[in-house]
Write a protein that binds this DNA or RNA. Structure first.
Lengths: 226, 226
DNA sequence: CTTGACATTGAACAGATGTTCTGCTATTAT
DNA sequence: ATAATAGCAGAACATCTGTTCAATGTCAAG
């Protein structure tokens, strides 16, 4: 029993209203009034705006506080507002001669100074980000992984790695931590440096302990170097 | 000829109003009305709120749009909001054999896909961030700068560099782009690779064109490598 | 004490604003 | 064709809301 297609001008006007809400809020710092929406979205009567606002509220795009001027919140923004930040604790250092030391799994000091803020848009969306942690690289030992002194490495804790993933491993025979690409090849593990000028090393799987998967490397260039 | 200390209840009320503005905006998604501020900040008359709002506007804490309901913007927030993001356009690629090509200075396509989001806390605060741009590294040619294929390099455009800064330079004699630490040494330029296993190169300053200063390098490790 | 600037109150007014109602038009199912 | 429903316009109304004003209180300096 529907009359007109629900997607001719309707969708268009809804979209225009949502854009108006976004843009007005952005420009003035507060939501528009009904009449201002009408002007922005080129809708000629206030009742029409109200009409579509009700619809948008039903669809879950916005929330309204009845009777309150400019009482509109955009819940589901049209322009997917890129801008989520994620705080990752820098829990320590990573260097060749020492195993990775993750203090107090899941409970870190919440200082701003020991946090790295990373935009969620740069993180793999499918991962559960809650347990990520970061390490600061100390020394030149990770140089064959193209990772330098002072770089920040963001890791996802895991004991198992898939082929082709960059992992932080602890080699029990050498008592050393290193960053390498991981390849399991019939019984042995091939650890491939990121820098193609370096040769891969092969280890028996019994001496390779995967500490975590490298998600990202951040290098802040201060101005001192070499 | 001043009467009362300007910092007894005044400061307190101003602070309460600013807090009310912040909290209300946070809770409802739009600024409070005068009367709602009065309630939040425990001020008993609307004229008092207006009185202090004028003062706060003079002091540059807020901006008001006269005659507009809820027409208040908080400019200088009391609680410094940690979590600012900065959008940097990825304007192209950087590779050995081609000069850096910055299209349309200051006017980039505003696609979300060609943007890198970086937390302002990771950027040097003193820089004017407005003109930063990012390039994606193509090929292995930057490997002696510890920069790999696929890495994102964030640059600040400049023609002059200081000693010790990592810069992107165009070498006119070789027709090549490269990333190196920059040192001016009595007439010649020493370009020092970030990787200490590589040797520095020396060039006459006439063939070295500084394209930009490297601010940050971001490597997103997808899972494929080597 | 007097003065003057700041602080405060309460009320009133004008305009902004959300809401509703009536009526009209266009489109589509039957 | 005809009815039903969605889309639309304009006006009217009640209330929300910013603004102003007159009166009073408070406090410190002269």
């Amino acid at each position: 029993m529907m009359a007109r297609k629900k997607s001719t001008q309707l969708h268009d006007k809804q979209k225009r209203i949502l854009e108006a809400l976004d843009e007005f809020q952005d420009r003035y710092g507060y939501p528009p009034s009904i009449r201002e929406i009408a002007e922005f979205a080129q809708i000629s009567s206030t009742s029409m705006v109200d009409y579509y606002l009700r619809r948008l509220e039903e669809l879950g795009y916005i929330e309204r506080d009845g009777g309150v001027s400019r009482g509109i919140r955009v819940v589901k923004s049209l322009s997917q507002k890129v801008g989520e930040l994620f705080h990752i604790p820098v829990v320590g250092y990573i260097q060749a001669g020492e195993p990775i030391n993750i203090p107090q799994e899941g409970f870190y000091p919440f200082d701003a100074e020991t946090m790295v803020e990373v935009a969620t848009s740069l993180l793999p969306s499918h991962e559960r980000k809650s347990r990520l942690y970061a390490l600061e690289v100390k020394g030149d030992s990770m140089i064959d992984a193209m990772v330098n002194d002072g770089d920040i490495v963001i890791l996802q804790p895991t004991q198992v790695a898939n082929n082709g993933e960059m992992v932080a491993v602890w080699l029990t025979d050498e008592e050393a931590t290193t960053l390498k690409y991981y390849y399991r090849e019939n019984g042995t593990i091939r650890l491939q440096p990121a820098n193609p000028n370096y040769e891969p090393i092969r280890k028996d799987e019994s001496v390779v302990q995967v500490q975590g998967k490298v998600i990202m490397v951040i290098r802040q260039v201060g101005g001192t170097g070499a």
